[in-house]
Design a protein around this nucleic acid. Structure first.
Lengths: 95, 95
DNA sequence: GTATATTGTAAACTAACACTTATCAATATG
DNA sequence: CATATTGATAAGTGTTAGTTTACAATATAC
């Protein structure tokens, strides 16, 4: 079975967590990454790493798993869109 | 809060799924990756990618999420062992 | 209105890493 | 003994998350 819906990029979701008036520059400073790094994430040009997930969880008061989970679902959906080899299921001895 | 226990590397878990008599070479052929690629995963020298998770799920009849989830937990634990910047929680307006 | 600072993204570069093929020592098999 | 097969290492390639630098656009100061 495949995932029906193109999941949102985590950066897209992150956008909604940022207060309206907060600039990328400010947010990057709080997260202690460069402006560029955060900008890329927000624009879907880079993914959420474990390190970034920890920063986001400290800052936003979430679990890191939320962010990494989103990234995982996104990665998985992307991979499912690629041509895939036909793999014959392993024959297991019945219990 | 941090994860208490060093989670197993997914490759370690994968080992347990392989039939006793199956060689790395055979398994790699079924998964349609090189011997080296699989060997590295089994020895914890490489992680589980989305593409690999899909191969494993096809072959072993699991969901891909199982494997990617393990990888995520492992990545997270590794990142937690590193020195981390002190990030001040974002002040949210109370509801 | 012009000068200066700040913003967000792009460009260029570096480091890490997943993958491949080639190589090698060790073990099995003819 | 000779040959083939195994699993791991070495070497090389491509991708990508991170940095600093550069730039065009907008805001702020004088």
């Amino acid at each position: 079975m495949s995932r029906m819906h193109n999941p949102a990029h985590p950066g897209e979701v992150l956008r909604e967590w940022l207060p309206e008036e907060m600039t990328v520059t400010q947010a990057a400073k709080e997260l202690q990454v460069s402006r560029v790094t955060l900008s890329k994430v927000l624009n879907g040009k880079a993914g959420i790493t474990a390190s970034m997930a920890l920063r986001l969880s400290s800052w936003l008061g979430t679990t890191p798993d939320v962010w990494l989970g989103m990234q995982t679902q996104w990665d998985l959906w992307q991979a499912e869109q690629q041509p895939r080899p036909k793999i014959r299921p392993l024959e297991r001895l019945p219990v």
